[in-house]
Design a protein around this nucleic acid. Structure first.
Lengths: 214, 214
DNA sequence: AAACATTTGTCCGTATGTATA
DNA sequence: ATATACATACGGACAAATGTT
């Protein structure tokens, strides 16, 4: 049997990376509860690896704000307050809004088409009531806009903030509504017409509206 | 002899933390050159500690964008392109601008006074030609505004982006001018009058002007 | 192509410091 | 207050992977 030319090289998966992804997922979806104490020996056993990659993962998760380490004392999952979404969305809205503005200078016809088709899948998810699918597609939509800016600083920050949005979703503090579909359309149209003012305004509204509904 | 009541407890500083601060400083001020290969054993010997805290520090520095790790291959200091400042300042301007807006809802008379006195020290540094002192005081000014928002998400992101600004300063891509003094005054005045529009506009201009001069 | 040299990734033991009885 | 139990921070050795001769 011919071995499929796996052009995407197997990207050496380190134990640390696996642990990081797994732990972050567990924190986001609530498997690891807010305030829960994390014992590295325990986690190491659970994941079948040693304490070192666990410790390294926990430190990265601390930077992301998912765990808090008390040196020499303990490590625990950060609390998640419903109210925190009020602090989270404004900076994210500001950066997404900036991304829309910056993306206008780089966006191609092809990418605009792509945004349109993503938004169609978003509409489908919304109408079918699959809210988690909708969230993921919504993320995909905004992620593409951020990527178009080719701004690595924005990319890094947004990725981190988005992870927190996802966590809030699992803790039932976020709801996506039909209105987002039209807002996305408006954003695409504004980008097509290079209307920065409109694009930034709608984008900001798209993110902050969630707060008003909160 | 009576032991002085050191109320500010010595804050157990770990080897990792020391290493992180030292390495970050070395990268910012150019002691560790862009592109330079980092051998953890070497660094461990240099700092008189083991590889573990060094590796942990390097991983945190990677998140911050100061080093890039190639798993199994090597770790090196990230390059610094003069052009990168064009990507760095817009998101920072957006967040500082947002901070000014949010700070208005929480700021006290006392803090406004404090901002004024910081700005006086800033002016002194500018006029005396001590540009690094000016940079640090400027950072202090904006840091206080960010702190007033009490928004931990913004605080974390800004701290990270500011470190990059500092690095660009050492690589001679940033110059602070007298104009900032008046802009700071305008920001304080706008905050005092709860004029969000004015505060955000001036703050944004204050950060983006550096790009125009670039 | 294969063995070597080098560097990173992981494991685990120990010391240090913290909380509890 | 002292001692005990326990979790973390660090160190050093081994294993795995890379690239080099």
């Amino acid at each position: 049997m011919p071995i499929p030319a796996n052009h995407s090289r197997p990207v050496r998966q380190s134990a640390k990376e696996n642990a990081f992804n797994q732990l972050q997922q567990w924190i986001i979806d609530g498997t690891l509860l807010p305030g829960e104490k994390l014992n590295d020996t325990e986690l190491a056993d659970a994941l079948g690896i040693s304490r070192t990659p666990i410790r390294e993962s926990l430190q990265l998760l601390e930077v992301r704000g998912f765990v808090k380490m008390f040196p020499g004392k303990a490590t625990q999952v950060t609390e998640i307050e419903r109210e925190a979404i009020k602090d989270l969305l404004p900076p994210l809205a500001a950066l997404q809004s900036l991304s829309a503005e910056l993306a206008i200078d780089h966006v191609t016809e092809d990418q605009l088409t792509q945004l349109g088709s993503i938004n169609e899948r978003f509409a489908t998810s919304i109408y079918s009531g699959n809210s988690y699918a909708a969230l993921k597609v919504d993320e995909e939509f905004h992620q593409l806009i951020v990527d178009i800016t080719k701004n690595t600083y924005i990319q890094g920050v947004v990725e981190s903030l988005q992870a927190h949005v996802r966590r809030h979703f699992f803790h039932n503090s976020i709801v996506l509504t039909e209105q987002s579909i039209d807002e996305h359309k408006a954003i695409i149209t504004a980008m097509k017409h290079s209307d920065k003012e409109k694009a930034t305004a709608v984008m900001k509204e798209n993110w902050l509206r969630t707060l008003q509904e909160f």
